[in-house]
């Protein structure tokens, strides 16, 4: 799939450090080639806890290569803010999807899949399937 644009991944958490660390973890575990673009949108612009539509919009634009953007979120206002932005229609790149997935496991699955050239549907499916990994 060399040369084809990769799906971008945006990680939205209430906490800036959580979003950054999960992005780092996902990139690290996906290593071994060209990694798909990943951007963290954590917390508020002033560094506090919360969700910022501005940071989300900027992160999504920064990873958009024309193949779609998968957005993974933690909880509460992160979910609602992305849904509300998608409903508006012009605040996020074309073909941006809110992906229903566990935040950490889903991020790893999404980045691995996007890095290997999977399309937006494949990235979404891989991230969602992470709900199925039982731990006990």
């Amino acid at each position: 799939m060399s040369g084809a644009p990769q799906v971008g991944i945006v990680l939205v958490s209430h906490s800036g450090p959580v979003a950054e660390a999960v992005a780092e973890l996902a990139r690290g575990l996906a290593a071994g080639g060209v990694t798909a673009p990943v951007a963290a949108a954590g917390g508020l612009p002033n560094g506090g806890l919360g969700t910022s539509a501005e940071l989300i919009g900027r992160a999504a634009a920064s990873v958009d290569r024309g193949a779609g953007v998968a957005v993974l979120v933690d909880l509460g206002s992160a979910v609602l803010t992305v849904k509300a932005m998608l409903a508006e229609g012009d605040e996020l790149p074309e073909n941006t999807r809110l992906v229903d997935a566990p935040f950490v496991e889903g991020a790893v699955a999404a980045v691995v899949t996007a890095s290997s050239g999977g399309d937006i549907g494949a990235v979404e499916a891989a991230a969602s399937e992470a709900y199925g990994y039982r731990k006990t």
Binding site: G50, T51, G76, S77, L80, A84
Partner: peptide
């Protein structure tokens, strides 16, 4: 939506 930062913003 762009300024609140909590769930009340999108709602």
């Amino acid at each position: 939506i762009s300024t609140v930062g909590g769930a009340s913003g999108p709602l």
